[in-house]
Every structure is written in C-alpha cells, then in structure tokens.
C-alpha cells in the first residue's frame, strides 16, 4: 500500500498537476477581485450580523431579521478574505473539482492501460484502488490553497481587506477539505461502477450542485403526501443534509458542523463507505 501511495504521488507531481494549480489560482484571483470590487462599490451586499455567541460577523449577500445593511463607506472594511473563500467554496466548486479530478485520474490509468502494470497477479488488487484516495486528498488540498492564494491576489489588485478570524478559517479549511475529499472518493467508486468517464463526470457535476439532495427532498415530500412518514419526522432527520455536496455548501465560518452529526463525521463515514464500495467493485470486476 505504501509503495502504491508513493507511486501515485510521484505520478501526480510528474503529470504537471501545477497547471491545474495555476488555472485555479487565476480563476480565484479574478472572481475575488470582481467580488471585492463590487462589494467596495455598492456595499449593499455586505451584511453585518450577530451570531449565537454574540460576535459580530460580516457576510456577503446574507440577510435576516437580525442583520443590518452596511453601506459603501465602510464596505471595504467589512469583508474578509476568509468570507470570500467560503463563498467560493460554498458554491460547490471544490467538491466538483475534487470529483472530476478523481474520475480523470482513474480513467487515465485505465485508458492508457497503465493499470495493467499495477495489478499483475496482485494478491490484493483493492490496494491499487485505495491508494488513489491519497492524490485525491492532495489535489483537493492544493486546489483549496490555490483558491486562497487567488483571494489574496484579488485583494492585492483591488482593495486590501483583512484575512478574518484565523482559527475559524483553519477549522473551516480542515472540515471542507475532508468533505471534498470524501466526495472525491465517492467519485472514484462511481467511476469503478460505470467505467465511463463522460457519464461519471456529468453525474459528479450534477451531484455536486445538489441534484441528489433535491431528488431526496422530492421523495421526502412524496412520502409525507402518501402518509408513510410525517413532516416532523422529515424535519427531525433531514436526510438530505447528510449528503456531502449539501453539507459542503452549508458549512461556514460561524458553523463548521452545520448540523448533527458534524460535517467531519459525515466526511469520515463517507470516506469509509465509498472506499469500501469502490474496493468491492474493483475486486469483483475484471481489470481490463
């Protein structure tokens, strides 16, 4: 297993993964620069509110009955890099990128036939599958770093804004990293199931945008309508909130758990389940 991990990491860096880093950095810079510019010009989108701990927080585009709208005069002082980072990742882009990378990585191995070099009479070929989770984790991590770098550069090109609460940011970063990695592992397993790159990528895109949770919500409505379960039951258990893509979208600096069980546990369960599923599929199906 260690040898396979070593091989995967070597392959990851030799196949010029830094190109993806640069593209992500550039895109994040552009998005951040535009977001900061709009915020500074209008200010209307910046909202000051008080969280449950009594602390003042600033959100872009979030308003409820406890919020005040802050105008442009103080706008550039009322946002942070951390908030912009959360906005970008909360759109679903990081789980999507992690998922797409996982599929392309697996498909390249199979399409080139390189997988044959790894599985000749291998006693436990499932190790070949499991070892791929490591480059998925590394890629997700450095994509998030690229986004952060882009936010910083966006700030450099427009208005200097503060970083924000470092401890909250670090907690958010770690939780989001594991949630996105879990989604990447789900994508590895999905690819092993269908072994068609394009179809898998399309499923991943729509899943990362919340399609599965929408379907589940529809099913929940149906179940309530036909009387199989009550609305209170649905509200109590909120099944759709436990999906990785959904959880990734709702966690934020103020609340990195965003529900029970916490997002980190959801991610850990997801990694275990999808790794196990992928390994079973990998063992049962022919390699080529």
């Amino acid at each position: 297993m260690f040898n396979l991990i070593r091989m995967n990491l070597y392959r990851f860096f030799r196949e010029k993964g830094y190109i993806a880093f640069i593209i992500t950095l550039l895109c994040a810079t552009l998005i951040s620069a535009i977001a900061i510019e709009i915020t500074a010009e209008s200010g209307i989108e910046i909202v000051e509110s008080v969280d449950e701990n009594g602390q003042t927080v600033y959100n872009m585009g979030v308003a409820d009955e406890n919020s005040d709208i802050t105008l442009s005069a103080a706008a550039e002082a009322n946002t942070s890099m951390a908030e912009i980072f959360v906005e970008i990742l909360g759109s679903g882009v990081i789980v999507m990128i992690s998922g797409i990378f996982a599929i392309i990585y697996s498909d390249t191995e199979r399409r080139y036939g390189f997988v044959k070099n790894l599985t000749v009479r291998k006693r436990e070929r499932v190790a070949v599958f499991a070892a791929k989770a490591v480059p998925v984790f590394v890629f997700t991590c450095y994509t998030m770093v690229a986004v952060l770098g882009g936010v910083y550069l966006g700030s450099c090109f427009t208005y200097a804004i503060p970083f924000g609460n470092v401890n909250r940011f670090f907690a958010y970063f770690v939780v989001q990293l594991f949630v996105a990695t879990a989604f990447g592992v789900f994508s590895l397993a999905l690819y092993e199931l269908i072994r068609k790159e394009v179809v898998a990528v399309i499923i991943v895109i729509f899943t990362s945008l919340g399609l599965v949770s929408k379907i589940v919500q529809l099913l929940e409505m149906g179940l309530v309508k036909v009387g199989i379960c009550s609305e209170a039951f649905i509200e109590k258990y909120e099944i759709s909130q436990h999906f990785l893509a959904n959880r990734s979208a709702v966690i934020n600096l103020s609340d990195v758990s965003a529900g029970k069980p916490c997002a980190l546990i959801i991610a850990a369960i997801g990694i275990v389940i999808y790794l196990a599923a992928g390994m079973i599929l990998y063992r049962k199906k022919d390699v080529v």
């Binding site: 392959r11 036939g113 390189f114 044959k116 009479r121 080529v288």
Partner: peptide, 15 residues
C-alpha cells in the same frame, strides 16, 4: 508472485 511475473498484454500500458 507479483514480482515473479511480468506481462505485456494487448497494448503496452504507458502514460
């Protein structure tokens, strides 16, 4: 046994 067997089956698996 993994080390004792080498195989080239169909096209060579090269990246």
């Amino acid at each position: 046994r993994e080390r004792r067997i080498g195989a080239l089956i169909e096209a060579p698996g090269i990246i």
